[in-house]
Structures are given as structure tokens and as C-alpha cells.
Amino acid sequence: MNSVIEMIEGLGRSVLNALARLGLAGRFFLAILMVIGVPLRRFSLLVRELYFSGVRSLLIIVVSGTFVGMVLAIQGYEVLQRFGSAETLGVLVALSLVRELGPVVTALLFAGRAGSAVTAEIGLMQATDQIAAMDMMAVNPIARIISPRFLASVVSLPLLACMFSAAGVFGAYLVGVKLIGIDDGSFWSQMQAGVDFRLDIVNGLIKSLVFGVAVGLIAVFEGYYAPPTAEGVSSATTRTVVTSSLAVLMLDFVLTVWMFRGLNG
């Protein structure tokens, strides 16, 4: 009996903790938005973060995109040729990339590559009093440190997702057309006939924008509130990757339902 009550108490506590943390994150988000103009006005702050988040992620994104596209082409061809419609490979690959894999895989890779680095950097700045020192110098650390990193994530992710999808289509082209020998013309024309700019490409962009907000917020939040110890920073870094990945996958589901509902009407 006692243990049951204890269990329920434990559950209640963890739910309350999670809610408190969510509330904290919400307030933090608002604080960031209040000063989001700073990195826009002082562009060099944003440029530096774009370099570390975006440019440094470029290689892994392009390489992954190419390989994902190539694998999609092989697997897709294998299935499609059973139904005698191998020329529709282009549509299959392009839609998978632009709608889902581009935004989602890019966000997952980005969380691991750039998000974790941002968390570790901010966590260390916190642990070594750099943030406190800045605050004492009457420079708002949210404006000067946090918001450029957040904004860089929001800007980089859609750009990276586009590059991922483009690289993927290119990879599929290499395998499908150059290797397997699907007709060049029908590969592209089927793709163009099947992929809609607004419905597929713009929706994919919107997805990656939302993921950019989520991953960016989680990364700076975990870093800012990381316990100022080596262990605290390292576990915050791990949490950034885990939480962002979960958030991306769940948001993807919600966005997909919302975007593609009633499409078959």
C-alpha cells in the first residue's frame, strides 16, 4: 500500500518537475524573442554563429544526403520495378526527401553536430562564470550569447535541409539513371510532375524552420541551465541530443498530419 502511494507520489513529482522545466523553457523562449533584434542589428554576432552551426555542419549534411538518396534509389527501384513503374523512382525519392527525410534527418544530424556543441559551449561559459561576468558588465547575455546561437539554428536548418534534399536527389540520379539506367528524361519529368512546389517543397521548408526553432531552443536552454560542473555540462549535452531528436520526431508527426490532411479529398 505504502509503496503504491510512494510510486504515485514519485510520478506526481516528476510530472510537476517536467512541467516546471517546460514553463522555464517557455519563459526563456520569450526572453530570447524579446532580444532577437540584437543579432539582426549586429550582424557579425549572427555570422559567427552561422559559421559554427551552419558551415561546420555542411559536409556531414551533404555527404549524408547523397548517401540517403543513393540508398533510396536502390530500395525504391527494387520495389517499383515489381510493378513495372521504375520511371516513377524520381517522384518517390524526391517526395521522400523533400517532405520527410530532408527536414527530419537534417534536424537529427544538426542536433548531434551543432546543437550539442552549442549546449557544451554555453554550459562551459556558465560554469566558468563568463555569462555572469558579462551580466555584471551590463551586457545582456541572452541578447549577446543566446539569441545569436538560437537564430543561427533557425536560419541554418532550412538551408541545410535544402542542401540535404538536393544532394539526395543528386545521389538518386547517380544510382537510378547513371547506374541502373532509368531513362534520364522520365526520371526528371516524372519528378517534376509529382512534386508540387507549395505543397511539398514549401511544407518541407516550414518543417525544417520549426525544427530549427525546437533544436535551437533546446540547445541554448540546456546549456544555459546546465549545472556548472563537468558532469552537469556533459549530461546537458546528451540531453540536448536526446530531447531534440524526440521533439523533432514528434513535431514531424504533428506537422505531417496538419499539412497533408485532406490531401486525398
Binding site: D129, A133, M137
Partner: peptide, 19 residues
């Protein structure tokens, strides 16, 4: 508060230089 703090100088334990 920020106006007041511009007239403060604080030295943190390990310097807290921006790395």
C-alpha cells in the same frame, strides 16, 4: 540596474575571461 553595473567592476574567481 545595468546603468549602475556599468560603474561596477567585478573580478571573478578564475577571471571568467571570454574564451
Amino acid at each position: 540596474l545595468y546603468a549602475l553595473r556599468t560603474r561596477f567592476g567585478m573580478l571573478f574567481q578564475f577571471g571568467a575571461l571570454f574564451t
